[in-house]
Simulated assay, not measured.
Amino acid sequence: MKFLIVDDDFDSRRLVQKILHPYGYSDLAADGEEGVEAFRQALEAGEPYDVITLDIMMPNIDGQDALREIRDLEKEYGILPPEGAKVIMISGLDDSQEVHDAFFLGDATSYIVKPIRKRVLIEEIQNLGVRLEP
């Protein structure tokens, strides 16, 4: 299992990495720009990510724009839903507009409000049909 964790908060990145560590390999990105580039490189290498956690509020490229760029890259590579990466938006904002934009403008797979809890994240990934095996 291959994960991409995109969050500008160091502690949040490390927490998600620690939660997901038993289930696979995680790459980390500190902002949306780094996240999109990591995603592009993974596609070019033929090793796409299975699950991406993507913070919304970040410098350079925010999570909403990064998600749209990720979905555009998938289209360029001929990856169509539901075959694309499972993208879980993670935010401190419990804002209906952000949730709407994530699902309807960016084709997010899920949305979790911080603080990040291990049980919630694991259950959310499994609810998306991803088998997590240590």
Rank of each mutant, 00 (worst) to 15 (best):
M1E: 01
L4Y: 06
D7H: 07
D7C: 09
R13P: 01
R14H: 11
K18D: 09
L20M: 03
P22R: 02
G24V: 03
A30F: 10
G32Q: 06
G32H: 07
E33C: 06
V36I: 11
E37G: 04
Q41P: 02
Q41Y: 10
A42C: 02
L43D: 02
E44F: 01
A45W: 02
A45R: 15
E47P: 00
V51F: 03
T53C: 04
M58I: 07
P59S: 05
N60M: 12
D65C: 00
A66E: 13
L67W: 07
L67I: 04
L67H: 07
E69H: 09
R71P: 01
R71Y: 04
D72I: 09
D72M: 11
E74T: 00
I79H: 02
I79A: 10
A85W: 06
V87L: 11
V87S: 04
V87C: 07
V87I: 15
I88N: 10
I90W: 04
I90L: 04
S91W: 08
S91F: 04
D94Y: 06
D95R: 13
S96K: 13
V99I: 15
V99R: 15
A102P: 03
F103W: 11
G106W: 04
D107I: 00
S110Q: 14
S110H: 14
Y111I: 09
I112C: 04
K114N: 10
K114D: 13
K114M: 13
I116G: 02
I116V: 15
K118E: 15
K118I: 03
V120Q: 14
I122Q: 08
E123F: 05
E123V: 00
I125W: 11
N127I: 00
N127A: 07
V130S: 12
L132D: 13
L132Q: 10
E133Q: 09
P134Q: 07
